[in-house]
């Protein structure tokens, strides 16, 4: 449990996917013009990340690795399988949401298919491999990473809504200022670097 919380908080705040690795930047910039739509996309990302990272862990561990069911080192198939899992999971999530809650489906709209090409999703799976997490850690990493992405997109959407009323030089308006704000947010998040959440959960 300690490990779980530790990795969750670390991946949400200290090593935020957007602000310190620039993952999922494209949709982060494109969909952050209003808080409402940003919220929808953020929730969908938490959901998809929380599902795909553990599934990709299972695939990597039981099928692709040398000690897996097939007994062969198939790691060169990793990219193709991971992206196929992500694409099909997004499709599945879309179908389930449409069936269970049409209202949520309508509010998410086009953002669901967009998630397939969101680098944060594939990036989290690849980080999970390169950091050699075990299963429960990868669940925590998926959820925490999604939560961090959610926080970042909500924050920038709120700032951009306020910025509409400020006097910015014309060539910098829109995209340019969004980049600079993201940089400032990244520096703010950097203040959390070096904090080891494990200390708080060590039981004392």
């Amino acid at each position: 449990m300690e490990d779980f919380l530790n990795i969750f908080i670390k991946s949400a705040f200290v090593e935020n996917l957007v602000l310190s690795y620039f993952l999922g930047m494209c949709s982060y910039l494109a969909v952050s013009k209003s808080v409402k739509t940003a919220m929808g996309l953020g929730l969908a990302v938490i959901f998809v990340l929380g599902i795909t990272v553990p599934i990709n862990w299972l695939i990597n561990h039981y099928i692709l690795s040398e000690g897996g069911l097939l007994g062969m080192d198939l790691t060169f198939l990793r990219f193709i399988l991971f992206i196929a899992v992500i694409a099909s999971m997004v499709q599945l999530v879309e179908m389930v949401i449409e069936k269970v809650s049409p209202a949520l489906y309508n509010s998410l709209g086009i953002f669901l298919p967009l998630i397939t090409v969101n680098c944060a999703i594939l990036g989290a799976s690849l980080f999970m491999i390169s950091r050699e997490y075990n299963f429960s850690e990868s669940v925590a990493f998926g959820l925490g990473g999604g939560f961090g992405w959610f926080l970042a997109i909500i924050a920038i959407a709120a700032i951009r809504e306020k910025l509409k009323y400020s006097n910015i030089p014309a060539p910098l308006r829109g995209l340019g200022i969004a980049f600079i704000i993201t940089g400032l947010m990244g520096m703010a998040f950097m203040g959390l670097m070096g904090i080891d959440p494990a200390i708080f959960f060590s039981g004392k």
Partner: peptide, 19 residues
């Protein structure tokens, strides 16, 4: 060296190009 610098430089490049 920090990641934030890339974003600032990117913002400035866009500013220059658009002006």
């Amino acid at each position: 060296v920090l990641p934030a610098a890339a974003l600032f430089i990117m913002g400035l490049i866009i500013w220059y190009q658009r002006s």
